[in-house]
Amino acid sequence: MANKITVGHVHMSGCTGCLVSLADNYEGLFTILDNYADLVYCLTLADARHIPKMDVALVEGSVCLQDECSVEEIKETRERAAVVVALGGCAAYGNITRFCRGGQWNQPQHEGFVPIGDVIDVDVYIPGCAPCPQQIRNVCVMAYLLLKGTPEQQALAKAYLAPLMALASEGSKATSSEACGCDIMTKVINQGLCMGCGTCAASCPVFAITMEEGKPNINRDMCIKCGACYAACPRAFFSFDVVNQYENILGIIDGAMNPGGN
């Protein structure tokens, strides 16, 4: 028990889809909670009313500027968590809440929603809507190894998390990232880097990207700004140090999720 890390799920303006995605690891979630992490805060699943001190905060949802409680809680989260993870497109990039203009019941005056990085510094981004269960699982295992592992495991976890930390440091500079298909255009294709693999199209949760003549064609009206396409693109970021070890890393994650060895 003493060796576990403490994790909290902080719910801002999101749909709970990211938390459901975490839970969709099914027995894997139990493995994580049994062996690696204590869930010290989670309004849906744990009985704690106030944000406690914790190692890792998984923040879901964007911050509503007109909701005093949300603003207070995101600041508390930053003060009390060693590592703040933006879990999912809303926390990382605003996602669908970018399109809110207020007027909805029962809080019509709630109209300004911003990614958490606009209010606090964020350490790690997990883009996507929702980020897939295996991506959340991988980050959980790597966060555990980073905080509790051997020096070797720590180095590996650091290398694995580095690109997600880079996304966070880039995204936290307000307005630096469109976090939508536009990123594929401006940071990949416009830069002469696209080779037409199609990973962006496969990663888009709303099928806003189709491959036309070997290149992504982005339907901007359909894009929800979750950031999945850019994060998935091998020409957005690619670390040979990490990916060359894919078998080793997948083996470590697999081993961690099957501690009994079956």
Binding site: S21, D24, I126, C132, Q134, Q135, A202, A232, F238, V243
Partner: peptide, 19 residues
């Protein structure tokens, strides 16, 4: 490049649930 993309996707399956 596509195999690179594949291995990256296995490590960082951002939007590729259960794949």
């Amino acid at each position: 490049c596509q195999i690179q993309a594949l291995r990256k996707a296995q490590l960082y399956p951002v939007g590729l649930r259960d794949v």
